[in-house]
C-alpha cells in the first residue's frame, strides 16, 4: 500500500458564534452581554487520498467543505482530530509543507489588484525561493496551458473574472505544489471557461502527478475530473467512493427513457412499468427500482414492439442524486 498523501482522522471544527436578536432592547442588552452558540462546521470526518488522485469533495452550502480545506492547508486549527498531508501536520505551518501545497479559492484573490500579475509572480518566486530556470519553466508551462500570454502584463483589476481566475491558477501553481486544494475554482465562470479550467486541471494532474482535492457545485466539473468523490453534509461524511457507485448507493432507482414512433399517445398506459417522470414529443421517462430495471425494460420492449424507436436505461443525473441525498438526509434529521 502506498503512503497516503492526505490522511484525515476524526477531524472536527467547532466555531463559536455570537447571536444577536432583533429589537432595541435586545440590542442594548447585547451591548453588555452576548449570547454564544457553537456551530459544528466539521463534525468528525475520516478519509485518505492516495498520490495523484483527483478527488471531488461534495456537499451543499455550509456542509463544511471550505472549513475542511482550510484545516488541511493549515489556515485553521481543528477542534479535535488528526490530519497529515504529505506527512506534515498542516496547522503547524512548517515552511517545508507550505512550499509543497497550494490552496486556490474561486472567490478570493491573492494577486495584488493594482499591479500586473507578472510582478506578483516575481514576488512568489522570491517567497518560494524558486531558482530562475525552474521559475521560467513553470511560467512558460502555465502560460502555455492556460493561454495567459499578454494577460500577465495587465494590471489585475483590468482582467475579466475568467481571465483573473486563470492568472490566479498560475499564481497558485507557480511553485509546482504536489498537493492542490481547489475550492470552487470554476465559480462564476462561463461554460467555455469552465471547460478550459477543467481541461487544465486534468492536464496538470497528468503532467505533474499532483494530488488534487476539489470542491465544486458544478457537477460537470466533478464528472469530468474525479473518479472518486467524498460527500459531506452538516459536517459528516455521507459517502466516500467511486463516482460511478455513488448512484447505486445513493439512488436506488434507474431512469428508463423510451422513444415511441407514434408519439406516445396519452392513452398508452405506462404506469404499470414504473413512475412516469415526464412525457413529451414521443419521449417517456420512467423511474423504476434498480433491481427490477432489467425486467421492466424487457417487458417494455416486448409489449411495445414496433412502436418503440429507441430505449435506454441510465442512472439518474448526478445533480439529482446529490440533491436526493441531501434532502433525504434532511428528512431523516428532522424526522
Amino acid at each position: 500500500m502506498t503512503e497516503a498523501v492526505v490522511d484525515v482522522r476524526e477531524l472536527r471544527k467547532t466555531f463559536r458564534v455570537t447571536e444577536r436578536e432583533e429589537g432595541l432592547a435586545a440590542t442594548l442588552r447585547s451591548f453588555v452581554k452576548r449570547r454564544r452558540k457553537d456551530v459544528n462546521a466539521v463534525a468528525g470526518i475520516t478519509f485518505r487520498i492516495d498520490p495523484g488522485e483527483i478527488v471531488g469533495f461534495l456537499g451543499p452550502n455550509g456542509a463544511g467543505k471550505t472549513t475542511t480545506l482550510k484545516m488541511l492547508s493549515g489556515l485553521l486549527y481543528p477542534s479535535a482530530g488528526d490530519a497529515k498531508v504529505l506527512g506534515y501536520v498542516p496547522w503547524r505551518r512548517e515552511n517545508a509543507y507550505l512550499g509543497l501545497m497550494t490552496l486556490l479559492m474561486g472567490n478570493r484573490t491573492q494577486l495584488v489588484w493594482d499591479i500586473p500579475a507578472a510582478d506578483s509572480f516575481r514576488v512568489l518566486q522570491e517567497i518560494y525561493r524558486i531558482p530562475e530556470d525552474r521559475f521560467r519553466a513553470a511560467v512558460n508551462e502555465l502560460t502555455e496551458l492556460l493561454e495567459l500570454q499578454e494577460l500577465v502584463h495587465k494590471p489585475v483589476r483590468n482582467l475579466s473574472l475568467g481571465e483573473r481566475m486563470k492568472v490566479e491558477f498560475a499564481a497558485g501553481l507557480i511553485h509546482s505544489p504536489s498537493v492542490a486544494f481547489l475550492d470552487e475554482p470554476t465559480i462564476g465562470l462561463d461554460i467555455s471557461m469552465q471547460v478550459r479550467i477543467r481541461r487544465f486541471v486534468a492536464e496538470y494532474n497528468r503532467r505533474t502527478g499532483a494530488t488534487i482535492l476539489l470542491t465544486s457545485h458544478y457537477m460537470d466539473d466533478v464528472v469530468a475530473l474525479c473518479k472518486r468523490v467524498i460527500v459531506i453534509h452538516r459536517g459528516r461524511l455521507l459517502y466516500d467512493g467511486p463516482l460511478a457507485d455513488l448512484a447505486e448507493r445513493m439512488a436506488p432507482y434507474k431512469i428508463i427513457t423510451a422513444t415511441l414512433h407514434d408519439g406516445a399517445a396519452p392513452s398508452t398506459d405506462l404506469d404499470s412499468y414504473g413512475t412516469v417522470v415526464s412525457r413529451d414529443e414521443g419521449r417517456v421517462m420512467l423511474r423504476v427500482d434498480r433491481q427490477v430495471a432489467p425486467e421492466r425494460t424487457a417487458r417494455l420492449v416486448n409489449d411495445l414492439g414496433d412502436r418503440l424507436a429507441d430505449i435506454s436505461v441510465e442512472d439518474p443525473p448526478i445533480e439529482e442524486i446529490i440533491d436526493r441525498v441531501f434532502t433525504s438526509e434532511q428528512a431523516t434529521v428532522s424526522a
Binding site: 444577536r20 429589537g23 432595541l24 440590542t27 442594548l28 447585547s30 451591548f31
Partner: peptide, 14 residues
Amino acid sequence: YRALLVAQLQAASQ
C-alpha cells in the same frame, strides 16, 4: 428614525 437608530445601535454594539 427609530428603525435606523436601532440598526445603528446594533452596529455600534458590535
